[in-house]
Design a protein around this nucleic acid. Structure first.
Length: 518
RNA sequence: GGCCCCGUCGUCUAGAGGCCUAGGACACGGCCCUUUCAAGGCCGCGACACGGGUUCGAAUCCCGUCGGGGUCACCA
Protein backbone atom coordinates (compact mmCIF):
# COMPACT_ATOMS: atom_id res chain seq x y z
CA UNK A 1 0.00 0.00 0.00
CA UNK A 2 1.40 3.36 -1.04
CA UNK A 3 1.14 5.97 1.67
CA UNK A 4 2.68 9.41 1.32
CA UNK A 5 2.57 12.43 3.52
CA UNK A 6 3.00 16.15 3.45
CA UNK A 7 4.19 17.64 6.71
CA UNK A 8 3.79 21.40 6.89
CA UNK A 9 4.71 23.53 9.85
CA UNK A 10 2.00 25.93 10.92
CA UNK A 11 3.59 29.07 9.58
CA UNK A 12 0.51 30.95 8.53
CA UNK A 13 1.00 30.66 4.79
CA UNK A 14 1.41 28.09 2.04
CA UNK A 15 4.58 28.57 0.05
CA UNK A 16 4.39 27.81 -3.65
CA UNK A 17 7.34 25.43 -3.40
CA UNK A 18 5.64 23.62 -0.57
CA UNK A 19 2.55 23.19 -2.67
CA UNK A 20 4.58 21.66 -5.42
CA UNK A 21 5.97 19.09 -2.97
CA UNK A 22 2.49 18.38 -1.63
CA UNK A 23 1.20 18.02 -5.16
CA UNK A 24 3.83 15.45 -6.11
CA UNK A 25 3.16 13.46 -2.94
CA UNK A 26 -0.54 13.58 -3.60
CA UNK A 27 -0.24 12.69 -7.27
CA UNK A 28 1.99 9.75 -6.49
CA UNK A 29 -0.45 8.42 -3.90
CA UNK A 30 -3.45 8.89 -6.16
CA UNK A 31 -1.70 7.42 -9.15
CA UNK A 32 -0.94 4.28 -7.20
CA UNK A 33 -4.28 3.94 -5.50
CA UNK A 34 -2.68 4.79 -2.19
CA UNK A 35 -3.29 7.28 0.56
CA UNK A 36 -2.09 10.76 1.15
CA UNK A 37 -1.91 12.19 4.62
CA UNK A 38 -1.16 15.39 6.36
CA UNK A 39 0.97 15.63 9.43
CA UNK A 40 1.48 18.86 11.28
CA UNK A 41 5.07 19.51 12.27
CA UNK A 42 4.48 21.79 15.22
CA UNK A 43 7.09 20.52 17.66
CA UNK A 44 8.47 24.01 17.82
CA UNK A 45 5.23 25.92 17.60
CA UNK A 46 5.03 29.16 19.51
CA UNK A 47 1.87 30.58 18.10
CA UNK A 48 -1.72 29.52 17.81
CA UNK A 49 -1.46 26.43 15.67
CA UNK A 50 -5.05 26.32 14.47
CA UNK A 51 -4.88 29.86 13.23
CA UNK A 52 -1.53 29.44 11.53
CA UNK A 53 -2.66 26.21 9.97
CA UNK A 54 -5.84 27.49 8.42
CA UNK A 55 -4.30 29.20 5.37
CA UNK A 56 -2.33 26.04 4.64
CA UNK A 57 -5.28 23.69 4.78
CA UNK A 58 -7.44 26.15 2.84
CA UNK A 59 -4.81 26.43 0.16
CA UNK A 60 -4.49 22.69 -0.26
CA UNK A 61 -8.25 22.27 -0.38
CA UNK A 62 -8.57 25.02 -2.93
CA UNK A 63 -6.10 23.21 -5.17
CA UNK A 64 -8.02 19.98 -4.80
CA UNK A 65 -5.24 18.27 -2.87
CA UNK A 66 -7.29 16.26 -0.42
CA UNK A 67 -5.96 14.12 2.41
CA UNK A 68 -7.19 10.79 3.66
CA UNK A 69 -5.85 11.23 7.17
CA UNK A 70 -4.81 14.29 9.09
CA UNK A 71 -6.31 17.41 10.66
CA UNK A 72 -10.08 17.74 10.34
CA UNK A 73 -10.51 14.23 9.00
CA UNK A 74 -8.66 12.23 11.65
CA UNK A 75 -7.58 8.67 10.90
CA UNK A 76 -6.56 5.44 12.55
CA UNK A 77 -3.01 6.45 13.42
CA UNK A 78 -3.62 9.85 14.95
CA UNK A 79 -3.10 12.25 16.46
CA UNK A 80 -1.58 13.92 13.41
CA UNK A 81 -0.05 16.82 15.30
CA UNK A 82 3.52 16.26 16.43
CA UNK A 83 2.95 18.34 19.52
CA UNK A 84 0.55 15.64 20.70
CA UNK A 85 2.88 12.74 20.08
CA UNK A 86 5.64 13.46 22.53
CA UNK A 87 5.42 10.15 24.39
CA UNK A 88 6.04 8.22 21.17
CA UNK A 89 9.24 10.18 20.61
CA UNK A 90 10.42 9.78 24.17
CA UNK A 91 9.78 6.08 23.98
CA UNK A 92 11.90 5.92 20.84
CA UNK A 93 14.69 7.82 22.57
CA UNK A 94 14.65 5.29 25.40
CA UNK A 95 15.00 2.45 22.93
CA UNK A 96 17.95 4.08 21.20
CA UNK A 97 19.56 4.72 24.56
CA UNK A 98 19.03 1.11 25.64
CA UNK A 99 20.57 -0.16 22.47
CA UNK A 100 23.63 2.03 22.84
CA UNK A 101 22.77 3.99 19.69
CA UNK A 102 22.33 7.23 21.56
CA UNK A 103 23.82 8.72 24.68
CA UNK A 104 23.25 11.37 27.29
CA UNK A 105 25.55 14.26 26.70
CA UNK A 106 26.44 16.84 29.32
CA UNK A 107 28.42 19.33 27.28
CA UNK A 108 27.34 22.94 27.49
CA UNK A 109 26.54 24.92 24.39
CA UNK A 110 29.77 26.87 24.91
CA UNK A 111 31.87 23.75 25.12
CA UNK A 112 30.44 22.43 21.89
CA UNK A 113 31.00 25.77 20.28
CA UNK A 114 34.60 25.80 21.42
CA UNK A 115 35.19 22.44 19.77
CA UNK A 116 33.57 23.71 16.66
CA UNK A 117 35.76 26.79 16.58
CA UNK A 118 38.87 24.72 17.15
CA UNK A 119 37.98 22.49 14.22
CA UNK A 120 37.37 25.56 12.13
CA UNK A 121 40.76 27.02 13.03
CA UNK A 122 42.56 23.81 12.22
CA UNK A 123 40.60 23.50 9.02
CA UNK A 124 39.36 20.03 9.79
CA UNK A 125 35.77 18.91 9.78
CA UNK A 126 34.08 19.21 13.15
CA UNK A 127 33.19 16.06 14.99
CA UNK A 128 32.15 16.09 18.61
CA UNK A 129 34.76 14.58 20.93
CA UNK A 130 32.11 12.89 23.10
CA UNK A 131 34.04 14.25 26.03
CA UNK A 132 30.91 14.76 28.10
CA UNK A 133 29.22 11.62 26.93
CA UNK A 134 27.72 9.63 29.81
CA UNK A 135 27.27 5.98 29.11
CA UNK A 136 26.79 4.72 32.63
CA UNK A 137 24.67 5.79 35.56
CA UNK A 138 27.88 6.70 37.36
CA UNK A 139 28.91 9.05 34.58
CA UNK A 140 25.55 10.71 34.73
CA UNK A 141 25.69 11.22 38.47
CA UNK A 142 29.18 12.63 38.21
CA UNK A 143 28.20 15.21 35.55
CA UNK A 144 25.01 16.08 37.30
CA UNK A 145 26.91 16.67 40.53
CA UNK A 146 28.67 19.40 38.57
CA UNK A 147 25.30 20.94 37.90
CA UNK A 148 25.29 19.93 34.27
CA UNK A 149 22.18 19.12 32.25
CA UNK A 150 21.96 16.62 29.47
CA UNK A 151 20.63 16.28 25.98
CA UNK A 152 20.43 13.00 24.12
CA UNK A 153 22.64 12.62 21.11
CA UNK A 154 22.83 10.02 18.39
CA UNK A 155 25.92 7.84 18.59
CA UNK A 156 26.76 7.78 14.94
CA UNK A 157 28.91 5.03 13.41
CA UNK A 158 32.59 5.83 12.95
CA UNK A 159 32.99 4.00 9.69
CA UNK A 160 31.20 2.49 6.77
CA UNK A 161 29.11 3.83 3.93
CA UNK A 162 25.41 4.34 3.56
CA UNK A 163 24.11 3.57 0.10
CA UNK A 164 20.74 5.05 -0.63
CA UNK A 165 18.58 4.31 -3.64
CA UNK A 166 16.67 7.51 -4.14
CA UNK A 167 13.71 7.27 -6.48
CA UNK A 168 14.58 10.45 -8.30
CA UNK A 169 18.31 10.86 -7.74
CA UNK A 170 19.36 7.28 -8.08
CA UNK A 171 22.22 5.91 -6.02
CA UNK A 172 23.58 8.29 -3.40
CA UNK A 173 26.37 7.45 -0.99
CA UNK A 174 27.31 8.90 2.38
CA UNK A 175 30.15 8.11 4.70
CA UNK A 176 28.92 7.51 8.21
CA UNK A 177 32.03 8.99 9.73
CA UNK A 178 31.07 12.41 8.36
CA UNK A 179 27.79 12.45 10.21
CA UNK A 180 27.42 14.38 13.43
CA UNK A 181 26.13 13.13 16.75
CA UNK A 182 22.93 15.09 16.38
CA UNK A 183 20.80 16.02 19.33
CA UNK A 184 17.51 14.17 19.31
CA UNK A 185 16.18 15.22 22.72
CA UNK A 186 16.55 18.60 24.32
CA UNK A 187 17.41 19.40 27.89
CA UNK A 188 13.75 19.96 28.63
CA UNK A 189 12.84 16.50 27.37
CA UNK A 190 11.24 17.64 24.13
CA UNK A 191 12.35 15.98 20.93
CA UNK A 192 13.75 17.23 17.67
CA UNK A 193 12.43 17.06 14.20
CA UNK A 194 14.58 14.30 12.80
CA UNK A 195 13.61 11.88 15.50
CA UNK A 196 9.95 12.84 15.43
CA UNK A 197 9.90 12.63 11.67
CA UNK A 198 11.22 9.08 11.60
CA UNK A 199 9.02 7.88 14.42
CA UNK A 200 5.92 9.32 12.80
CA UNK A 201 6.67 8.02 9.35
CA UNK A 202 6.80 4.57 10.85
CA UNK A 203 3.73 5.10 13.01
CA UNK A 204 1.76 6.33 9.99
CA UNK A 205 3.02 3.49 7.80
CA UNK A 206 4.49 5.89 5.28
CA UNK A 207 5.79 3.90 2.31
CA UNK A 208 7.33 6.75 0.30
CA UNK A 209 8.99 9.81 1.73
CA UNK A 210 8.71 12.39 -1.02
CA UNK A 211 10.19 15.71 -0.02
CA UNK A 212 12.37 18.54 -1.20
CA UNK A 213 16.03 18.14 -2.01
CA UNK A 214 17.18 20.14 0.99
CA UNK A 215 16.41 17.08 3.11
CA UNK A 216 18.77 14.83 1.20
CA UNK A 217 21.69 15.62 3.50
CA UNK A 218 19.49 14.90 6.52
CA UNK A 219 18.64 11.45 5.33
CA UNK A 220 21.60 9.50 6.77
CA UNK A 221 20.80 10.42 10.36
CA UNK A 222 17.17 9.54 9.76
CA UNK A 223 18.13 6.21 8.29
CA UNK A 224 20.34 5.62 11.31
CA UNK A 225 17.43 6.31 13.65
CA UNK A 226 15.03 4.16 11.66
CA UNK A 227 17.42 1.24 11.50
CA UNK A 228 18.25 1.58 15.18
CA UNK A 229 14.59 1.36 15.99
CA UNK A 230 14.16 -1.66 13.78
CA UNK A 231 11.88 0.04 11.29
CA UNK A 232 11.61 -0.94 7.66
CA UNK A 233 12.93 1.96 5.65
CA UNK A 234 10.55 3.91 3.46
CA UNK A 235 11.46 4.61 -0.15
CA UNK A 236 12.97 8.03 -0.52
CA UNK A 237 12.38 10.49 -3.32
CA UNK A 238 14.09 13.86 -3.12
CA UNK A 239 12.54 16.43 -5.37
CA UNK A 240 14.50 19.30 -6.87
CA UNK A 241 13.43 22.54 -5.30
CA UNK A 242 11.59 25.39 -6.93
CA UNK A 243 14.07 28.15 -7.63
CA UNK A 244 13.75 31.91 -7.87
CA UNK A 245 12.72 33.47 -11.14
CA UNK A 246 15.79 33.49 -13.38
CA UNK A 247 18.03 31.87 -10.79
CA UNK A 248 18.97 28.54 -9.31
CA UNK A 249 18.54 29.55 -5.71
CA UNK A 250 15.71 28.14 -3.69
CA UNK A 251 12.58 30.24 -3.75
CA UNK A 252 12.07 31.81 -0.37
CA UNK A 253 9.37 33.98 1.05
CA UNK A 254 11.87 36.22 2.74
CA UNK A 255 13.52 37.52 -0.40
CA UNK A 256 10.43 39.19 -1.73
CA UNK A 257 12.17 42.50 -2.28
CA UNK A 258 14.67 40.84 -4.54
CA UNK A 259 11.99 39.10 -6.60
CA UNK A 260 10.07 42.29 -7.05
CA UNK A 261 13.03 43.58 -9.03
CA UNK A 262 12.28 40.84 -11.52
CA UNK A 263 10.09 42.32 -14.19
CA UNK A 264 7.73 39.38 -14.68
CA UNK A 265 7.32 38.85 -10.98
CA UNK A 266 6.60 42.51 -10.43
CA UNK A 267 4.01 42.52 -13.20
CA UNK A 268 2.12 39.66 -11.62
CA UNK A 269 2.31 41.34 -8.25
CA UNK A 270 0.99 44.56 -9.68
CA UNK A 271 -1.86 42.83 -11.39
CA UNK A 272 -2.78 41.23 -8.10
CA UNK A 273 -2.57 44.49 -6.23
CA UNK A 274 -4.92 46.19 -8.64
CA UNK A 275 -7.51 43.52 -8.05
CA UNK A 276 -6.97 43.62 -4.31
CA UNK A 277 -7.41 47.34 -4.37
CA UNK A 278 -10.64 47.14 -6.34
CA UNK A 279 -11.91 44.66 -3.80
CA UNK A 280 -10.84 46.74 -0.85
CA UNK A 281 -8.68 43.83 0.26
CA UNK A 282 -5.95 44.57 2.72
CA UNK A 283 -3.01 43.21 0.79
CA UNK A 284 0.16 43.36 2.79
CA UNK A 285 3.05 42.12 0.66
CA UNK A 286 3.91 39.82 3.56
CA UNK A 287 0.92 37.61 2.96
CA UNK A 288 -0.16 38.67 -0.50
CA UNK A 289 2.46 37.97 -3.12
CA UNK A 290 3.21 35.48 -5.87
CA UNK A 291 5.27 33.20 -3.61
CA UNK A 292 2.19 32.44 -1.54
CA UNK A 293 -0.62 30.25 -2.80
CA UNK A 294 -3.34 32.36 -1.31
CA UNK A 295 -2.40 35.17 -3.67
CA UNK A 296 -3.61 33.15 -6.64
CA UNK A 297 -6.82 32.18 -4.98
CA UNK A 298 -7.56 35.78 -4.04
CA UNK A 299 -7.13 37.21 -7.51
CA UNK A 300 -8.98 34.43 -9.28
CA UNK A 301 -6.57 31.92 -10.73
CA UNK A 302 -7.97 28.53 -11.63
CA UNK A 303 -6.68 25.86 -9.27
CA UNK A 304 -6.26 23.49 -12.18
CA UNK A 305 -4.04 25.99 -13.97
CA UNK A 306 -1.74 26.40 -10.97
CA UNK A 307 -1.65 22.67 -10.51
CA UNK A 308 -0.87 22.12 -14.16
CA UNK A 309 1.96 24.61 -14.11
CA UNK A 310 3.43 23.35 -10.87
CA UNK A 311 3.32 19.75 -12.07
CA UNK A 312 5.43 20.69 -15.09
CA UNK A 313 7.94 22.37 -12.82
CA UNK A 314 10.22 19.39 -12.46
CA UNK A 315 8.12 16.77 -14.14
CA UNK A 316 7.15 16.08 -17.74
CA UNK A 317 5.37 13.33 -19.56
CA UNK A 318 7.03 13.60 -22.94
CA UNK A 319 8.30 16.11 -25.45
CA UNK A 320 5.02 17.87 -26.16
CA UNK A 321 2.28 17.36 -23.59
CA UNK A 322 1.69 20.53 -21.64
CA UNK A 323 -1.97 20.78 -20.87
CA UNK A 324 -3.14 18.44 -18.13
CA UNK A 325 -6.35 18.31 -16.16
CA UNK A 326 -6.06 17.14 -12.61
CA UNK A 327 -7.34 13.74 -13.66
CA UNK A 328 -4.81 13.43 -16.47
CA UNK A 329 -2.06 14.34 -14.05
CA UNK A 330 -3.13 11.53 -11.76
CA UNK A 331 -3.11 9.10 -14.65
CA UNK A 332 0.26 10.14 -16.04
CA UNK A 333 2.36 11.07 -13.03
CA UNK A 334 5.42 9.06 -12.14
CA UNK A 335 8.50 9.69 -10.05
CA UNK A 336 10.71 8.23 -12.78
CA UNK A 337 9.99 11.28 -14.89
CA UNK A 338 10.82 13.82 -12.23
CA UNK A 339 13.86 15.91 -13.04
CA UNK A 340 16.95 16.22 -10.91
CA UNK A 341 17.83 19.82 -11.62
CA UNK A 342 16.02 22.64 -9.85
CA UNK A 343 13.40 24.47 -11.88
CA UNK A 344 12.93 28.19 -11.60
CA UNK A 345 9.56 29.70 -11.12
CA UNK A 346 8.40 31.65 -14.16
CA UNK A 347 5.41 33.93 -13.54
CA UNK A 348 4.90 34.45 -17.27
CA UNK A 349 4.61 30.80 -18.02
CA UNK A 350 2.27 30.27 -15.10
CA UNK A 351 0.14 33.01 -16.55
CA UNK A 352 0.14 31.32 -19.93
CA UNK A 353 -1.23 28.15 -18.34
CA UNK A 354 -3.92 30.16 -16.61
CA UNK A 355 -4.83 31.75 -19.93
CA UNK A 356 -5.19 28.40 -21.63
CA UNK A 357 -7.27 26.85 -18.88
CA UNK A 358 -9.49 29.91 -18.77
CA UNK A 359 -10.10 29.76 -22.51
CA UNK A 360 -11.36 26.21 -22.16
CA UNK A 361 -13.79 27.08 -19.41
CA UNK A 362 -17.51 27.05 -20.36
CA UNK A 363 -19.15 30.46 -20.23
CA UNK A 364 -21.47 29.66 -17.34
CA UNK A 365 -18.55 28.56 -15.20
CA UNK A 366 -16.75 31.75 -16.03
CA UNK A 367 -19.77 33.72 -14.93
CA UNK A 368 -19.85 31.85 -11.64
CA UNK A 369 -16.18 32.51 -11.18
CA UNK A 370 -16.39 36.17 -11.87
CA UNK A 371 -19.62 37.04 -10.08
CA UNK A 372 -18.21 37.02 -6.53
CA UNK A 373 -15.63 39.60 -7.56
CA UNK A 374 -18.29 41.99 -8.79
CA UNK A 375 -20.27 41.38 -5.64
CA UNK A 376 -17.36 41.98 -3.33
CA UNK A 377 -16.61 45.18 -5.19
CA UNK A 378 -20.21 46.23 -4.59
CA UNK A 379 -21.05 46.37 -8.30
CA UNK A 380 -23.62 43.59 -8.31
CA UNK A 381 -26.12 42.72 -5.60
CA UNK A 382 -26.02 39.64 -3.44
CA UNK A 383 -27.73 37.59 -4.59
CA UNK A 384 -27.52 38.87 -8.12
CA UNK A 385 -30.82 39.56 -9.83
CA UNK A 386 -31.61 37.69 -13.03
CA UNK A 387 -31.11 40.89 -14.93
CA UNK A 388 -27.69 41.42 -13.37
CA UNK A 389 -26.68 37.88 -14.01
CA UNK A 390 -27.62 38.23 -17.64
CA UNK A 391 -25.59 41.37 -17.89
CA UNK A 392 -22.57 39.74 -16.30
CA UNK A 393 -22.93 36.92 -18.74
CA UNK A 394 -23.02 39.33 -21.67
CA UNK A 395 -19.93 41.12 -20.49
CA UNK A 396 -18.06 37.88 -19.88
CA UNK A 397 -19.04 36.65 -23.32
CA UNK A 398 -18.01 39.87 -25.03
CA UNK A 399 -14.77 40.09 -23.06
CA UNK A 400 -13.88 36.58 -24.19
CA UNK A 401 -10.28 35.71 -23.51
CA UNK A 402 -9.52 39.18 -22.19
CA UNK A 403 -10.54 37.93 -18.76
CA UNK A 404 -7.43 35.95 -17.88
CA UNK A 405 -8.09 35.65 -14.20
CA UNK A 406 -11.43 36.02 -12.47
CA UNK A 407 -10.46 39.32 -10.90
CA UNK A 408 -9.97 40.80 -14.36
CA UNK A 409 -13.72 41.31 -14.57
CA UNK A 410 -13.11 44.40 -12.47
CA UNK A 411 -11.33 46.08 -15.32
CA UNK A 412 -14.68 46.10 -17.10
CA UNK A 413 -16.47 47.66 -14.17
CA UNK A 414 -17.78 50.55 -16.25
CA UNK A 415 -20.54 48.29 -17.49
CA UNK A 416 -21.80 47.96 -13.96
CA UNK A 417 -21.50 51.59 -12.99
CA UNK A 418 -24.10 54.31 -13.57
CA UNK A 419 -23.96 56.24 -16.85
CA UNK A 420 -22.94 59.35 -14.98
CA UNK A 421 -20.52 57.59 -12.65
CA UNK A 422 -17.89 55.74 -14.65
CA UNK A 423 -14.59 57.59 -15.03
CA UNK A 424 -12.86 58.72 -18.21
CA UNK A 425 -9.23 58.15 -18.93
CA UNK A 426 -8.12 61.73 -19.56
CA UNK A 427 -5.70 60.79 -22.31
CA UNK A 428 -8.30 58.69 -24.10
CA UNK A 429 -10.84 61.48 -23.95
CA UNK A 430 -8.40 64.00 -25.31
CA UNK A 431 -7.18 61.80 -28.11
CA UNK A 432 -10.56 60.66 -29.37
CA UNK A 433 -12.63 63.75 -28.72
CA UNK A 434 -10.21 66.61 -28.36
CA UNK A 435 -11.04 68.04 -31.76
CA UNK A 436 -14.38 69.76 -32.33
CA UNK A 437 -14.84 67.87 -35.58
CA UNK A 438 -14.76 64.58 -33.72
CA UNK A 439 -17.49 65.77 -31.40
CA UNK A 440 -19.65 66.76 -34.30
CA UNK A 441 -19.31 63.35 -35.85
CA UNK A 442 -20.15 61.74 -32.53
CA UNK A 443 -23.21 63.96 -32.29
CA UNK A 444 -24.43 62.86 -35.70
CA UNK A 445 -23.83 59.24 -34.86
CA UNK A 446 -25.85 59.72 -31.69
CA UNK A 447 -28.84 60.73 -33.76
CA UNK A 448 -28.38 57.68 -35.92
CA UNK A 449 -28.44 55.49 -32.84
CA UNK A 450 -31.48 57.28 -31.53
CA UNK A 451 -33.31 56.28 -34.65
CA UNK A 452 -32.22 52.68 -34.44
CA UNK A 453 -34.50 50.18 -32.83
CA UNK A 454 -32.60 46.94 -33.23
CA UNK A 455 -29.78 47.12 -30.71
CA UNK A 456 -28.06 43.86 -31.55
CA UNK A 457 -24.41 43.63 -32.59
CA UNK A 458 -24.97 42.73 -36.25
CA UNK A 459 -27.47 45.47 -37.14
CA UNK A 460 -25.41 47.96 -35.18
CA UNK A 461 -22.38 47.08 -37.22
CA UNK A 462 -24.36 47.58 -40.39
CA UNK A 463 -25.61 50.88 -39.08
CA UNK A 464 -22.12 52.07 -38.35
CA UNK A 465 -20.80 51.04 -41.74
CA UNK A 466 -23.65 52.87 -43.44
CA UNK A 467 -22.89 55.89 -41.29
CA UNK A 468 -19.23 55.85 -42.24
CA UNK A 469 -20.11 55.67 -45.90
CA UNK A 470 -22.63 58.50 -45.71
CA UNK A 471 -20.24 60.74 -43.85
CA UNK A 472 -17.29 59.87 -46.02
CA UNK A 473 -15.06 59.30 -43.00
CA UNK A 474 -12.69 56.55 -41.98
CA UNK A 475 -14.08 53.99 -39.61
CA UNK A 476 -11.58 54.86 -36.93
CA UNK A 477 -12.86 58.39 -36.80
CA UNK A 478 -16.10 57.28 -35.29
CA UNK A 479 -15.30 54.02 -33.58
CA UNK A 480 -12.75 55.44 -31.16
CA UNK A 481 -14.84 58.38 -30.02
CA UNK A 482 -17.81 56.08 -29.45
CA UNK A 483 -15.74 53.68 -27.39
CA UNK A 484 -14.47 56.45 -25.18
CA UNK A 485 -17.97 57.85 -24.78
CA UNK A 486 -19.32 54.45 -23.81
CA UNK A 487 -16.57 53.15 -21.57
CA UNK A 488 -14.22 56.01 -20.83
CA UNK A 489 -11.38 53.96 -22.24
CA UNK A 490 -9.40 53.74 -25.45
CA UNK A 491 -9.21 49.98 -25.36
CA UNK A 492 -11.82 47.37 -24.73
CA UNK A 493 -13.67 44.58 -26.41
CA UNK A 494 -15.80 44.78 -29.55
CA UNK A 495 -17.64 48.05 -29.92
CA UNK A 496 -20.85 46.50 -31.18
CA UNK A 497 -20.94 44.19 -28.21
CA UNK A 498 -20.48 47.17 -25.94
CA UNK A 499 -23.35 49.02 -27.58
CA UNK A 500 -25.63 46.01 -27.40
CA UNK A 501 -24.84 45.26 -23.76
CA UNK A 502 -25.54 48.80 -22.64
CA UNK A 503 -28.69 49.15 -24.71
CA UNK A 504 -30.06 52.19 -26.44
CA UNK A 505 -30.99 54.35 -23.47
CA UNK A 506 -27.70 53.95 -21.69
CA UNK A 507 -25.66 54.44 -24.86
CA UNK A 508 -27.44 57.69 -25.60
CA UNK A 509 -27.05 58.83 -22.00
CA UNK A 510 -23.34 58.11 -22.10
CA UNK A 511 -22.80 59.85 -25.42
CA UNK A 512 -24.73 62.87 -24.18
CA UNK A 513 -22.66 62.98 -21.03
CA UNK A 514 -19.50 62.92 -23.12
CA UNK A 515 -20.69 65.62 -25.50
CA UNK A 516 -21.52 67.80 -22.53
CA UNK A 517 -18.04 67.49 -21.12
CA UNK A 518 -16.03 70.66 -21.62
C1' G B 1 35.57 25.12 4.01
C1' G B 2 33.76 19.51 4.50
C1' C B 3 30.01 16.45 2.56
C1' C B 4 26.05 15.81 -0.96
C1' C B 5 23.29 17.18 -5.34
C1' C B 6 22.88 19.48 -10.07
C1' G B 7 24.58 21.59 -15.17
C1' U B 8 20.44 21.15 -23.04
C1' C B 9 17.78 27.85 -25.96
C1' G B 10 16.49 33.81 -21.27
C1' U B 11 12.79 30.10 -18.70
C1' C B 12 10.14 25.00 -18.37
C1' U B 13 11.64 20.81 -20.91
C1' A B 14 12.30 16.29 -24.94
C1' G B 15 16.61 13.46 -25.52
C1' A B 16 18.57 6.87 -21.95
C1' G B 17 25.43 6.12 -28.43
C1' G B 18 23.57 6.77 -34.69
C1' C B 19 16.20 8.85 -35.53
C1' C B 20 19.88 15.55 -33.59
C1' U B 21 21.24 20.13 -39.29
C1' A B 22 19.16 18.93 -31.05
C1' G B 23 12.29 18.68 -30.96
C1' G B 24 8.13 21.21 -28.17
C1' A B 25 6.26 25.16 -24.86
C1' C B 26 6.61 30.16 -22.43
C1' A B 27 9.02 34.71 -23.29
C1' C B 28 11.07 37.86 -27.10
C1' G B 29 11.17 40.06 -32.46
C1' G B 30 8.64 40.43 -37.25
C1' C B 31 4.48 39.71 -40.46
C1' C B 32 -0.81 38.49 -41.21
C1' C B 33 -5.83 39.06 -39.33
C1' U B 34 -8.19 43.46 -37.14
C1' U B 35 -12.28 49.39 -35.00
C1' U B 36 -8.67 49.38 -30.13
C1' C B 37 -6.97 45.68 -26.77
C1' A B 38 -6.78 40.53 -26.32
C1' A B 39 -6.88 35.93 -28.87
C1' G B 40 -5.41 33.35 -33.27
C1' G B 41 -2.15 32.12 -37.73
C1' C B 42 2.73 32.20 -40.02
C1' C B 43 7.96 33.21 -39.76
C1' G B 44 12.24 34.21 -36.95
C1' C B 45 15.82 34.54 -32.76
C1' G B 46 17.89 31.11 -29.50
C1' A B 47 21.07 25.81 -25.99
C1' C B 48 24.09 20.45 -25.37
C1' A B 49 29.31 24.74 -19.35
C1' C B 50 34.58 23.55 -20.75
C1' G B 51 38.61 20.02 -21.65
C1' G B 52 40.20 15.21 -22.22
C1' G B 53 39.15 10.19 -23.16
C1' U B 54 36.06 5.43 -24.82
C1' U B 55 33.77 4.49 -29.75
C1' C B 56 33.37 3.82 -36.75
C1' G B 57 30.03 7.43 -34.22
C1' A B 58 28.58 11.13 -27.95
C1' A B 59 24.02 16.02 -25.64
C1' U B 60 23.83 10.86 -24.24
C1' C B 61 29.27 6.52 -21.26
C1' C B 62 34.10 7.60 -18.20
C1' C B 63 37.64 11.18 -16.00
C1' G B 64 38.97 16.05 -14.84
C1' U B 65 37.96 21.32 -14.64
C1' C B 66 34.66 25.19 -14.06
C1' G B 67 29.99 26.92 -12.55
C1' G B 68 25.44 26.77 -9.64
C1' G B 69 22.85 24.97 -5.42
C1' G B 70 21.73 22.28 -0.82
C1' U B 71 23.40 21.03 3.97
C1' C B 72 26.50 21.21 8.12
C1' A B 73 21.32 24.07 15.14
C1' C B 74 18.98 21.97 21.88
C1' C B 75 14.74 25.17 13.51
C1' A B 76 11.41 22.37 10.71
Amino acid sequence: MVRTRFAPSPTGYLHIGGVRTALFCWLFARRNGGQFLLRIDDTDAQRNVEEALKPILDGLRWLGIDWDEGPDVGGPYGPYYQSQRLEHYQQAVRVLLDRGLAYHDYATTEEIQAERDAAQNEKRPFRYSRHWMAETADDRRRFEAQGRQSVVRLKMPQEGTLVLEDLVRGRVEFEWAREQDHVIQRTDGSCLYHLANVVDDEAFRISHVIRAEEHLSNTPRQVFIAQGLGYTLPQYAHLPFVAEPGSRTKLSKRKLDKYLKNRDFADLMQRGQQIAEALGLQASPETFNPVITDFYEQIGFLPEALTNYLALLGWSLDDRSEHFTRQELIEDFSLERVNKAPASFDPKKLFAFQDRHMQLLPIEEKVNLVLPYLQRAGLVGQPASDRQRTQVRQVVEAAGDRIKIAGDILSHREFFLGDADFPYEPAALEKALGKPAAREVLGRFRDCLAACDNFAPAPLEQLLHDFVQQQGIKIGEIIHPVRVALTGKSVGFGLFDSLAILGKQRCLARIDRTLNQA
